[in-house]
Protein backbone atom coordinates (compact mmCIF):
# COMPACT_ATOMS: atom_id res chain seq x y z
CA UNK A 1 0.00 0.00 0.00
CA UNK A 2 1.57 3.22 -1.18
CA UNK A 3 0.28 6.25 0.64
CA UNK A 4 0.52 9.86 -0.33
CA UNK A 5 2.91 11.84 1.84
CA UNK A 6 0.22 14.07 3.24
CA UNK A 7 0.31 16.15 6.39
CA UNK A 8 -2.63 15.23 8.60
CA UNK A 9 -4.25 18.31 10.07
CA UNK A 10 -7.37 19.14 12.01
CA UNK A 11 -10.11 21.47 10.88
CA UNK A 12 -8.99 24.23 13.28
CA UNK A 13 -5.45 24.17 11.84
CA UNK A 14 -6.54 24.48 8.23
CA UNK A 15 -6.67 28.26 7.85
CA UNK A 16 -3.40 28.75 9.72
CA UNK A 17 -1.59 26.17 7.58
CA UNK A 18 -3.07 27.64 4.40
CA UNK A 19 -1.90 31.11 5.42
CA UNK A 20 1.64 29.86 5.96
CA UNK A 21 1.67 28.12 2.59
CA UNK A 22 0.33 31.21 0.84
CA UNK A 23 3.02 33.38 2.41
CA UNK A 24 5.61 30.86 1.34
CA UNK A 25 4.46 31.18 -2.29
CA UNK A 26 2.68 27.86 -2.73
CA UNK A 27 -0.02 27.53 -5.35
CA UNK A 28 -3.24 25.65 -4.73
CA UNK A 29 -3.47 22.89 -7.32
CA UNK A 30 -6.84 21.57 -6.29
CA UNK A 31 -8.92 20.14 -3.51
CA UNK A 32 -9.84 16.46 -3.63
CA UNK A 33 -12.75 15.11 -1.70
CA UNK A 34 -13.16 11.37 -1.10
CA UNK A 35 -15.37 9.12 0.96
CA UNK A 36 -13.93 7.53 4.10
CA UNK A 37 -15.42 5.02 6.56
CA UNK A 38 -17.07 7.61 8.73
CA UNK A 39 -17.61 10.72 6.71
CA UNK A 40 -15.37 12.44 4.31
CA UNK A 41 -11.73 13.08 3.59
CA UNK A 42 -10.46 16.30 2.06
CA UNK A 43 -7.00 16.61 0.54
CA UNK A 44 -5.57 20.00 -0.36
CA UNK A 45 -2.85 19.80 -3.00
CA UNK A 46 -0.27 22.59 -3.21
CA UNK A 47 2.55 23.15 -5.67
CA UNK A 48 5.72 25.18 -5.58
CA UNK A 49 8.41 24.86 -8.23
CA UNK A 50 6.94 21.53 -9.38
CA UNK A 51 7.03 20.07 -5.87
CA UNK A 52 3.80 18.93 -4.29
CA UNK A 53 2.57 19.20 -0.75
CA UNK A 54 -0.67 17.71 0.51
CA UNK A 55 -2.76 18.54 3.54
CA UNK A 56 -5.19 15.85 4.62
CA UNK A 57 -8.28 16.55 6.61
CA UNK A 58 -10.55 13.90 8.12
CA UNK A 59 -14.10 15.07 8.55
CA UNK A 60 -16.92 13.44 10.42
CA UNK A 61 -20.31 13.30 8.76
CA UNK A 62 -21.86 16.76 8.49
CA UNK A 63 -18.81 18.45 10.01
CA UNK A 64 -18.23 21.98 8.75
CA UNK A 65 -15.00 23.14 7.17
CA UNK A 66 -13.97 26.76 6.61
CA UNK A 67 -13.39 27.95 3.07
CA UNK A 68 -9.81 28.76 2.11
CA UNK A 69 -11.07 31.01 -0.64
CA UNK A 70 -10.04 34.25 1.13
CA UNK A 71 -6.45 32.93 1.06
CA UNK A 72 -6.48 30.98 -2.22
CA UNK A 73 -9.06 32.43 -4.59
CA UNK A 74 -8.91 29.44 -7.01
CA UNK A 75 -10.35 27.26 -4.24
CA UNK A 76 -13.84 28.45 -4.96
CA UNK A 77 -14.54 26.09 -7.86
CA UNK A 78 -13.18 23.06 -6.04
CA UNK A 79 -15.04 23.90 -2.84
CA UNK A 80 -18.29 24.47 -4.66
CA UNK A 81 -17.76 21.21 -6.48
CA UNK A 82 -17.19 19.31 -3.23
CA UNK A 83 -20.36 20.89 -1.82
CA UNK A 84 -22.24 19.72 -4.88
CA UNK A 85 -20.88 16.23 -5.34
CA UNK A 86 -20.09 15.20 -1.76
CA UNK A 87 -22.33 17.43 0.29
CA UNK A 88 -19.30 18.92 2.02
CA UNK A 89 -20.27 21.77 4.34
CA UNK A 90 -18.02 24.69 3.51
CA UNK A 91 -18.54 27.92 5.42
CA UNK A 92 -17.52 31.44 4.48
CA UNK A 93 -17.65 31.10 0.68
CA UNK A 94 -17.70 34.40 -1.20
CA UNK A 95 -19.10 32.88 -4.38
CA UNK A 96 -21.65 30.29 -3.33
CA UNK A 97 -23.53 28.24 -5.89
CA UNK A 98 -25.70 26.77 -3.14
CA UNK A 99 -24.44 23.24 -3.71
CA UNK A 100 -25.58 23.34 -7.34
CA UNK A 101 -22.40 24.04 -9.26
CA UNK A 102 -22.87 21.20 -11.73
CA UNK A 103 -26.22 19.58 -11.13
CA UNK A 104 -29.77 20.86 -11.11
CA UNK A 105 -32.63 20.02 -8.79
CA UNK A 106 -33.61 17.00 -10.94
CA UNK A 107 -30.28 15.24 -10.53
CA UNK A 108 -29.26 13.40 -7.33
CA UNK A 109 -28.42 15.88 -4.60
CA UNK A 110 -24.93 14.67 -3.64
CA UNK A 111 -24.17 12.01 -6.25
CA UNK A 112 -20.67 11.09 -5.09
CA UNK A 113 -21.47 10.92 -1.39
CA UNK A 114 -22.40 7.23 -1.59
CA UNK A 115 -20.67 4.45 -3.50
CA UNK A 116 -22.37 3.24 -6.65
CA UNK A 117 -25.17 0.80 -6.04
CA UNK A 118 -25.29 1.56 -2.32
CA UNK A 119 -28.58 1.68 -0.52
CA UNK A 120 -30.27 5.00 -0.62
CA UNK A 121 -28.71 5.90 -3.93
CA UNK A 122 -31.13 8.03 -5.84
Amino acid sequence: MRELEAIEIGVDQLLGEAHLLAQDGWRLVTITCARSEDGCEVIYHFDKDLKLKHLRLQLALEQEVPSIMPIFFPAYLAENEAMNLYGLRVTGLNIDYGGRLFTTAEAPRHPMARPAGARGEE
Binding site: M1, V29, T30, T32, C33, A34, R35, H45, F73, P74, Y76, L77, A78
Partner: peptide, 20 residues
Protein backbone atom coordinates in the same frame (compact mmCIF):
# COMPACT_ATOMS: atom_id res chain seq x y z
CA UNK B 1 -7.52 -0.51 -2.62
CA UNK B 2 -5.90 -3.57 -4.18
CA UNK B 3 -9.02 -4.62 -6.03
CA UNK B 4 -9.99 -4.16 -9.66
CA UNK B 5 -12.10 -1.12 -8.97
CA UNK B 6 -10.62 2.18 -7.95
CA UNK B 7 -11.83 4.06 -4.90
CA UNK B 8 -11.40 7.53 -6.26
CA UNK B 9 -10.27 9.19 -9.46
CA UNK B 10 -10.05 12.94 -9.23
CA UNK B 11 -9.30 14.92 -12.36
CA UNK B 12 -8.12 18.52 -12.16
CA UNK B 13 -7.93 19.85 -15.68
CA UNK B 14 -6.05 22.97 -16.77
CA UNK B 15 -9.14 24.95 -17.71
CA UNK B 16 -10.41 24.37 -14.18
CA UNK B 17 -7.34 26.21 -12.94
CA UNK B 18 -7.54 28.87 -15.64
CA UNK B 19 -11.10 29.96 -14.87
CA UNK B 20 -10.07 32.29 -12.00
Amino acid sequence: NGSKKLERVRVRTPTYANIP
